[in-house]
Design a binder for these strands. Sequence first.
DNA 1: TTCCACTTTCCCATTCAACGGGAGTCGCGG
DNA 2: CCGCGACTCCCGTTGAATGGGAAAGTGGAA
Lengths: 250, 250
Amino acid sequence: MANSPSGDSVTERLVRVLETFTPTRTVQSAADIGRRAGLPSSSAHRIVGDLVAAGLLERDDEGRVRVGLRLWELATRSSHALRVRQAALPAMERVQARLREHTQLAILEQDEALFLERLSDPHAGANITRIAGRLPLHASSSGLVLLAFADATVQERVLSRPLRRLSPETPTDPAAVRRTLAEVRRLGHVVAPGYVETVSTGIAVPVRDGLGGAVAALSVVLPRDAIPGPALAELRRAAAEVERALSARA
Amino acid sequence: MANSPSGDSVTERLVRVLETFTPTRTVQSAADIGRRAGLPSSSAHRIVGDLVAAGLLERDDEGRVRVGLRLWELATRSSHALRVRQAALPAMERVQARLREHTQLAILEQDEALFLERLSDPHAGANITRIAGRLPLHASSSGLVLLAFADATVQERVLSRPLRRLSPETPTDPAAVRRTLAEVRRLGHVVAPGYVETVSTGIAVPVRDGLGGAVAALSVVLPRDAIPGPALAELRRAAAEVERALSARA
DNA sequence: TTCCACTTTCCCATTCAACGGGAGTCGCGG
DNA sequence: CCGCGACTCCCGTTGAATGGGAAAGTGGAA
């Protein structure tokens, strides 16, 4: 029953297998994969074997499995988001050189903020975001910026669902979030203290397209008590630079 | 016949479909995909539909197909090469800020040089390398560095096959390449004028691991007549920085 | 407007590849 | 030495993938 809403086709199985890999779990045994994907052991081994043969998975020196580089090569054909990343990288490096904390680039993807790039100072505190990681739109500075400039239907959909709480200070009242969004649109930025982690503050600005929308959010994560002014100025400058770079090649 | 040396299993078909996307061809109709992958039209449509449902492909506003972001998310689980990229990025930015041409990072992958990252000045001349692109090991500065510090069996295998010519100046005599490799090992760098394109010179240095091998090659592409000295100094410094960054987190 | 070329969707009988249970091997730790 | 887990191989069954064909949508040219 290919293509059906939730049976299991071969394709779905393959994806399930690939999804057993997480940002933290990057290598595992074939048997592990089978267990996590809910597959009979013999099937799991066969499927993993196929994927390895196809190059989507690789075996390391001692038989364990990891995601293959071929997959990354294929993924890179997905120009549209990666063009944004490419355009933003120089500006992000500049921000990072000045602030030396965490500098991030996120886009709106399936009602979440998807982080495309992240530059971190080794001396900066750890934080939760990762490249290719996601955060809820209402609960992160990047997300709020993306949501503020998103399509109205997206806003409705997101705010009509229960708003997950990441930290004690995450805003979970739809009305409050709506007010925040209006303010984001007015000011062109957002400062989100403690929304994601109590010890840090996210600061984000939109990278605008020509039509009132936002193609991405640039953000930095600072210690909770840092003063946001200088970071904001840096971010504003960077966003303008990215917008220029994006419009330059059309 | 799952897992067999070259029949066609479902997995192989999926990969064939994904491989119809190239760095240049990033969107196409389902029918196109079918033709390129050698699939009956009805099968092609079904498979594309499955892949879209799984999120590995996406349809744009007008029905055409492109590679999905989900694929990129999955690919990012492939930490091992991307750790190198992450470690190298700051140093690469520094090189790029100084030289303002093309700065590249490549690793050895299946007997080719695979480019993980590339920073290009908008004012620099175009050149052939791309992120996730590949070049032969004998015919690019990055490749020669990688080959010079590679396993002896890899060297033998590569040099025993016919050496493809990319430009009139590409070295294609195995003996000559062998001499070059020895020199690369002695000097710790290579200057490759016109090997890839007649108008440019590639300059590369290895990023060494602790054991006589190279984890990656850092390179720049300069106009053919540029003097290589300053670039070399920059690259050396950058490589040392990357080696430090890599050993820092273990 | 009609015609034509092309893409896409839907349907359905056939069949063959994927499936998974099971048995056997290897390697490790107790 | 035994037990446990990972992995490999085998093989009969079966149902999902397959692809031909028909028909509906799309769009440009005449």
